[in-house]
Simulated scan of single mutants.
Amino acid sequence: MVRTPLTPEERERGERLGRLLRDARGGRSMADVAADAGISPETLRKIETGRAPTPAFFTIAALARTLGLSMDDLAGQCALVVL
C-alpha cells in the first residue's frame, strides 16, 4: 500500500499536535509519559517533533489520558486550517 504524501497543512497539524503534547508534558520526562501511556519514548519523540504527523487514534487517546488532556480540545486545536 502506497501512502499519499501529506499536504503542508497536514504536516503543520502534526507539528501543532506535537507542540501541544510537549507543552502538556511540562517537566515530566519523555520516558515517564511514554511508559504511562504504553508507548515507546521514540514514538513520543516522533510525535512531539512532528516526524509522526498522523499518529494512531489510540496512541493519542492514551497520551491525552496520561497528560490529562481532553480529546475534544486536542481535536479543536489541531483542526486543519483551510483558507
Rank of each mutant, 00 (worst) to 15 (best):
I47T: 06
E9D: 10
V82T: 15
R22C: 10
R65T: 02
D36W: 11
L6A: 05
R65G: 02
L17C: 00
P55V: 00
A24P: 06
L20Y: 02
P41A: 07
P53W: 02
R28F: 06
L6C: 08
T54P: 07
E42D: 11
T4A: 15
A64V: 06
D72T: 13
E15F: 00
L17W: 00
T43C: 13
L67F: 03
L80D: 12
I47F: 06
P41W: 12
T49K: 09
A62H: 12
A62E: 14
P55Y: 00
E48P: 01
R65C: 04
G50N: 04
R13W: 00
A75W: 03
T7C: 02
M71V: 05
G50F: 01
E12G: 06
L67E: 02
L69S: 03
D73F: 03
P41V: 09
R16K: 09
G76Q: 03
A56Q: 13
R22H: 11
P8A: 04
R51W: 01
G26I: 02
E10L: 07
P8C: 01
G18C: 06
T59C: 08
P41H: 13
A79R: 15
G76D: 03
A31S: 13
G18I: 03
I60C: 04
L69E: 04
A75K: 11
Q77M: 14
L74V: 00
G26Q: 13
P8R: 04
V33M: 12
M71A: 07
R16A: 00
D72K: 10
L80I: 12
L21H: 07
R19S: 11
P5R: 03
A56H: 08
Q77H: 14
D32G: 11
E48S: 05
R16Q: 03
A31Y: 07
A61F: 04
I60T: 05
A35G: 08
F58P: 10
L63V: 05
M1L: 14
L83R: 15
A75L: 09
R22Y: 11
P55R: 00
K46I: 02
V2L: 15
L6G: 07
R45A: 10
I60L: 08
P8T: 01
T66D: 14
T59M: 03
A34H: 14
T7P: 02
R28Y: 11
E42T: 13
R45W: 09
P5S: 02
A34G: 10
P41G: 04
G50A: 01
S40Q: 14
G18N: 12
A52N: 08
A56P: 10
R19I: 05
R28L: 13
